Simulated assay, not measured.
Amino acid sequence: MDDKLDGAEAKQPRTDRGRRTKRKLLDAAAQEFAEKGFHEASISSITRLAGTALGTFYTYFDSKDAIFRALVRDMSRQVGRRAVATIGEETGALAIERLALRSFLEFAREHKEIYRIIDEAEFVDPTSYRRHYETIASRIEGRLRAGAKSGELRDDIGEMHAWAIMGMNVFLGLRYFVWGNDGDPEDLAARANRFIAAGIAAEGAHRA
């Protein structure tokens, strides 16, 4: 797997035109895999959707497996970049989590295909599937630990809390923007943020 990843990175385009072409191929692959699934998708369909020659595909990717792995990594990076841009200069720990969730929900609304593609990765390429979630959980954990260090969050916060928040975020996107289309990212993020801050126990209830 490491060799495959290294090979993919070695094919990074060196020109703006090459980067645009690779972007077209990745976007076309997202459409193709989302509509047909990995096994029914084809390289010829990807290049047709991208408006590129078949030979151009192999300038950037060795196989259908290679572009699938690259697409999973690309989606993870897109989610991360979108979150960073949305968070901006905000420094409050809870506000950061609200903005990060809003960013993800907006991404899920615009790119519903991420769910099918990531779910398929569990079987097509388990390493990429696991890396996707580990990467996102690591980002969240880093933010939470920074919040604990600043004193805004409890000092025992860590990995488990990051995975729990990630699970909530993923399933909110699934429920409101894949299975339905009846959610508002801002409102959902605000309500989830209150849930993180206060939990579900009634005020004055005994807490373990």
Rank of each mutant, 00 (worst) to 15 (best):
G180L: 14
W179L: 15
I165G: 02
E152P: 04
D184Y: 02
D156Q: 10
R145K: 15
G167D: 09
A164N: 11
A146I: 05
G180E: 14
E159T: 13
D184L: 02
S150H: 10
R175Y: 11
L153G: 01
E152G: 07
W179E: 12
F171M: 12
M168V: 11
G151A: 05
A148K: 10
F171Y: 12
I165H: 07
D156G: 12
D155W: 02
N169S: 13
G151N: 05
G183F: 04
V170C: 01
A162I: 06
H161C: 03
H161N: 12
G151W: 07
R175D: 10
G147Y: 06
L174F: 14
M168P: 00
R175W: 07
D156F: 07
L174V: 13
N181G: 15
E152D: 08
G173F: 06
M168H: 03
I157N: 04
N169Y: 10
V170S: 02
S150A: 15
S150E: 12
A162K: 05
K149L: 12
A164S: 11
G151M: 05
E152H: 10
F177E: 02
A162N: 02
M168R: 03
W179K: 13
M166Y: 09
A148D: 01
L174D: 02
G151K: 07
G173M: 09
D155G: 04
I157S: 03
F177P: 04
S150R: 15
G158S: 08
D156Y: 07
A148P: 01
G167M: 10
L153H: 04
G167F: 11
A146L: 11
R154K: 15
M160C: 05
D184E: 14
N181S: 15
M168G: 08
D184A: 02
Y176A: 02
S150M: 11
H161T: 14
I165M: 12
I157T: 14
S150T: 14
E159K: 14
G183W: 02
G173D: 03
H161E: 15
G180C: 10
R145G: 00
G183S: 08
E159F: 08
R145A: 03
K149G: 06
A146T: 11
K149Y: 03
A162H: 05
D156H: 10
G167S: 14
E159L: 11
M168S: 03
D156M: 03
L174T: 02
R145I: 14
G167C: 06
I157W: 11
D184K: 01
L174A: 09
R175M: 09
I165P: 00
R175E: 12
N181A: 13
A162E: 00
L172Q: 05
K149D: 13
L153T: 01
G158T: 07
G180H: 15
A162T: 03
D182C: 13
W179M: 15
I165C: 01
